[in-house]
Simulated scan of single mutants.
Amino acid sequence: MSSTPTRTALRWLASFTGFPLGGLAAMVLVGPVDSVATAAAGGLVTGAVLGTVQGWAMRADRRTAAAWSATTALGLAVGLALGSSLVGFDTTMAALAVQGIVSGAFVGAAQAGLLHRRLGRLAIAWPAYLAGAWALGWTITTAIGVEVDEQFTVFGSAGAVTVAALTTVLPTLLVRRDAS
Score class of each variant (00 low, 15 high):
G43E: 00
L44I: 04
V45C: 03
T46C: 11
G47F: 03
V49P: 06
V49S: 00
T52I: 09
T52F: 08
T52M: 06
T52G: 13
V53C: 05
V53A: 01
Q54N: 11
G55V: 07
G55T: 09
W56D: 11
A57H: 12
A57S: 15
M58R: 10
R59V: 10
A60M: 15
T64W: 12
T64F: 12
A65F: 08
A66K: 05
A67K: 11
A67I: 08
W68Q: 05
W68M: 08
S69G: 12
T71D: 08
T72S: 14
T72A: 04
A73Y: 00
G75H: 06
V78M: 00
L80H: 05
A81Q: 01
A81H: 01
L82W: 00
L82G: 04
L82K: 03
L82V: 15
G83K: 00
G83V: 04
L86I: 12
G88Q: 00
G88E: 00
G88R: 01
D90S: 06
D90Y: 04
D90I: 05
T91S: 14
T91E: 10
T92L: 09
T92A: 05
M93T: 15
M93N: 12
A94I: 11
A94R: 15
L96R: 00
A97H: 04
V98D: 04
V98K: 01
V98M: 01
V98L: 08
G100P: 02
I101S: 02
I101M: 13
I101Y: 07
G104L: 12
G104E: 06
G104W: 10
A105L: 14
F106D: 05
F106K: 02
G108D: 03
G108E: 03
A110I: 02
A110Y: 00
A110G: 15
A112I: 07
A112Y: 02
G113T: 10
G113M: 11
L115M: 14
R117C: 13
R118K: 14
L119R: 07
G120F: 09
R121I: 11
A123S: 01
A125L: 10
W126T: 01
W126R: 10
P127S: 02
L130E: 03
L130N: 03
A131D: 03
A133G: 02
A133H: 02
W134Q: 09
W134S: 10
W134F: 15
G137T: 12
G137E: 13
G137P: 03
W138S: 08
W138E: 03
T142N: 11
I144M: 10
I144A: 07
G145N: 06
V146L: 13
V148M: 15
D149G: 14
D149F: 12
E150K: 11
Q151H: 15
F152Y: 13
T153R: 07
